[in-house]
């Protein structure tokens, strides 16, 4: 039987792969701003942050951006920097809302945390798009469209993360009780 540490490593690896898959699949979606992403892979980052800790969440985020860019051949392209910045911002916001000691006073559900992350993701991408790509504040006129899309995808990823966390945490308890029984 795998030790708890080994099974955690395996699960974090699986989450990274799933997040990278979503990241790559998302490039097929047409969006109003070239290289803009909805951030469906944030569901995996949020579930990792919730199930384990900030470190695991950051690993899944890195896997999502880096592996997702490698398989689509967009490493170091402008879209890669937008994705990296957006993911860094959303991971930071979600980690703060889940793990900061003040977060205990804010009884947010998965959807709330996820929408906050998605908003940070969209805002950072627009900001980076203005600085590196469009180079005029005109990009902000797209904010209502991009922001609504981000909020909707935040709700979907929040529900996904809640479901995933429930499934994974129930199978881990089964696993550990099983391995205890065999020992």
């Amino acid at each position: 039987m795998p030790t708890p540490d080994e099974s955690r490593t395996a699960r974090v690896g699986l989450f990274m792969a799933l997040a990278a898959f979503l990241q790559a699949a998302e490039t097929l979606f047409p969006t109003p701003v070239p290289w803009f992403r909805l951030g469906l892979g944030n569901a995996l980052v949020l579930a990792a942050l919730y199930l384990w800790d900030v470190r695991e969440g950051v690993w899944v985020a890195i896997g999502k951006v880096l592996v997702g860019a490698l398989v689509t051949g967009r490493l170091l392209s402008p879209g890669f920097f937008l994705a990296a910045g957006g993911t860094a911002a959303s991971t930071a916001v979600m980690a703060l809302l889940l793990h900061h000691h003040l977060a205990g006073k804010l009884p947010l559900g998965f959807v709330g945390v996820s929408v906050a992350g998605a908003a940070a993701h969209a805002f950072t991408q627009l900001l980076l798009a203005q600085i590196v790509f469009i180079k005029t504040p005109a990009i902000w006129s797209l904010a209502p469209v991009v922001g609504s899309a981000a909020v909707i995808s935040g709700i979907i990823t929040g529900l996904g993360a809640a479901y995933l966390s429930k499934v994974v945490s129930s199978t881990s308890t089964n696993l550990s009780s099983e391995s205890n029984a065999r020992l």
């Binding site: 559900g109 998965f110 805002f123 609504s148």
Partner: peptide, 28 residues
């Protein structure tokens, strides 16, 4: 277990939507 949806989430959704709707007016 954290709930998947809490009433406070509606506040987050509302704030996020309002922020994105009013962002363009900062640049007018």
């Amino acid at each position: 277990m954290r709930r998947s949806f809490s009433p406070l989430d509606l506040v987050v959704i509302g704030l996020a939507l309002a922020a994105f709707v009013f962002l363009p007016s900062f640049f007018r």
